[in-house]
């Protein structure tokens, strides 16, 4: 371990030594080989991002913060939640950093550490996953109603027309589809939940 470095950041106090390996920790937990340590801070990712305007930090800045061990700030960032997985940055990154997958890792780390600041996105994901874990298929109507009722009741009236359109045009099923071998899927997922990615 490097000599316990102290990084003073506003309000965050002294960095704990384990934070200095944050970059490594994130790389480990990411599917594929992330190449996160290869980032040259060129900003191609931040420049490519279609929704950068809504992010509190650009992806590039987030990776610099990972290097600096700013765990708290990174996990509280809205950036991973705004990422729409468009893969523009991924194919353009000159260093082949698996940026979009790192975003997934940061989301799951934020969920585990309960650090996210807006609960909508993780709840939406969780609701979706709940449907899949129950039926093996997604269920758009169930998802929409459940999610909107808890999070965006005010948006519902405006959307009623659209929802009705989707229903009358039979583009939303009233009842969920379910796979046959749900037991098998459940067994797989239960086992999977006990496993973690390390190398």
């Amino acid at each position: 371990m490097a000599p316990a470095e102290t990084v003073l950041t506003q309000g965050a106090g002294l960095k704990k030594p384990e934070d200095l390996t944050l970059l490594h920790e994130v790389a480990e937990a990411t599917a594929g080989v992330s190449h996160l340590e290869m980032c040259i801070q060129c900003g191609t990712c931040g420049g490519s991002c279609p929704s950068a305007a809504d992010m509190d930090h650009t992806p590039r800045a987030l990776f610099a913060m990972l290097r600096a061990g700013m765990r708290e700030e990174v996990l509280r960032s809205n950036t991973p939640w705004i990422c729409v997985s468009c893969y523009h940055c991924v194919v353009r990154c000159p260093q082949e950093v698996h940026i979009a997958d790192v975003m997934y890792t940061l989301k799951s780390m934020a969920i585990k550490a309960k650090k996210y600041t807006d609960s909508k996105p993780p709840d939406f994901s969780q609701t979706f996953v709940g449907m899949v874990e129950t039926f093996g298929r997604s269920f758009e109507l169930g998802l929409a109603t459940r999610f909107y009722l808890t999070h965006q009741p005010l948006r519902l009236p405006g959307m009623a027309g659209m929802g009705l359109g989707m229903l009358t045009k039979k583009r939303m099923n009233l009842t969920p589809n379910r796979i046959k071998n749900m037991d098998q899927l459940t067994a797989i997922l239960e086992k999977a939940k006990t496993l973690e990615l390390t190398s």
Partner: peptide, 29 residues
Amino acid sequence: GKVAEVTNATHGPHEKGKLIIQVEDTLVG
């Protein structure tokens, strides 16, 4: 910043007829 793209797809009338260079100004973030 390494330029992400050069495009003629505008985001509004102020960009009309121009080439748009989209980039992260990394020093501003």
